[in-house]
Design a protein around this nucleic acid. Structure first.
Lengths: 223, 223
DNA sequence: CTCGCAGTTATTCAAGCGTATAACAAATCC
DNA sequence: GGATTTGTTATACGCTTGAATAACTGCGAG
């Protein structure tokens, strides 16, 4: 029994590593598999260190949830292009890698199942959800404005909720049954559904040269 | 310390009570709150009895998941009316009580988060999912047949997946943010999205006299 | 250069977990 | 109407959990 290597790290590094380890544990074995010992083991430290950086196990779970939400939504923020392009990119980004995959779903479901139980997680969820929807509302408002269409805020709100629902459902379906149909198919379905919803056609986003994934998606879509 | 009342029950009753208690525990405190002691307490028996009816705690969870899936899907089966009415009812039933509420979502998320971890739950999930989609495919096939439209099986399969996704997402949205918009709004959004998806209008289902909930939904929808 | 101190490891603790088993109560059988 | 079987309670066991604490390590201040 030799003593574990003693390695000092900065606070930022440690917290990051521990949170990543937490997410890994949850993805691999569910919330029940994310014990302080498993997390510490995956992060290459001993269990006691977790309590040195996080007041309790609940706190590290909350931090991990924040990181997950950020990761799932950051790609859909700061899009550029015309309002139409941004809206199209928003749809695309949310239904393709790295947002849409089975690991994301596992993590998301694990936390969602505790949102109704743990008030702290519920607050984090609420914040992330409202922020995401607000982003979507802005996109829609810009889209309508660019088309010279009158944009009733209440209607935009409803549309955002509905569009959010459609994206969630297709994202879910893609994560769950991803092998049953290509990513491009999902994106295509999303476009036609959402076009019907808002009553306007949306041009697909202009692919960049390096966006191989997008071309793959289109290829699957059109085959 | 007096001994707990000794009350004999039939096997069907006991199993039912224990499974209901399990679902209650999960809904109230998450999967982590569904311990054998909590379940037994909620069912009004002692912990040992659970192992008399179920080989292990995993088994009672599996049985509870089966019951949940059945409850969430049975309302959408054996619909009657014309193919168009059945399809419309299918949409409606899946987006209103008792299928769409926050308790359903809590339970669903709890189990989904373990589907990727527990092979037994994965098998149950797969069966329920495929059965649900097959039901939907049949509805779509009948719908197209009644309209005299050529129904390519592969296309129907894709449509069923997409429609399933849209329904899932709106169901999710309704469960999560149900207070933010009326049920009728959700149903209305579902109709317009799905009509766009399949390229045909769908008449809303004919309400029965006793279907107060439906009238409420429509009222909210048209306000 | 050494000494204090913050970061890390190792160990310990009480509580709760799933499970096993023994004791008990009420039907059922002969 | 006693013996037997079966549903139920009660207790115990071994293990894991989150948390607390003690021991150790190495860097930086003085």
């Amino acid at each position: 029994m030799s003593r574990r290597d003693f390695h000092r790290a900065t606070e930022a590094e440690r917290r990051h590593d521990l949170i990543e380890a937490t997410l890994d544990c949850i993805a691999e074995a569910g919330l029940q598999g994310a014990t302080v010992r498993q997390i510490a083991d995956k992060a290459g430290v001993t269990a006691g260190l977790i309590r040195h950086y996080f007041a309790s196990k609940d706190v590290i779970l909350q931090e991990a949830y924040k990181v997950l939400i950020t990761r799932l939504t950051e790609k859909a923020k700061n899009l550029d292009g015309t309002p139409e392009q941004r809206l199209a990119s928003f749809i695309f980004v949310n239904l393709t890698e790295p947002v849409a995959n089975s690991r994301s779903l596992s993590l998301w479901a694990a936390f969602i199942s505790r949102v109704s139980v743990d008030p702290a997680l519920a607050a984090i969820h609420r914040e992330g959800y409202l922020s995401f929807r607000q982003e979507l509302e802005q996109l829609l408002a810009d889209f309508f404005a660019a088309r010279g269409v009158a944009a009733d805020p209440a209607r935009i709100c409803t549309l955002a909720i509905a569009m959010n629902g459609i994206l969630d459902g297709l994202w879910l379906e893609g994560c769950l049954a991803g092998e049953l149909f290509g990513e491009g198919e999902l994106v295509s379905i999303a476009f036609s559904s959402i076009e019907a919803l808002i009553g306007h056609p949306i041009k697909p986003p202009t692919p960049t040269e390096t966006d191989r994934e997008y071309r793959d998606a289109l290829r699957i879509h059109h085959r």
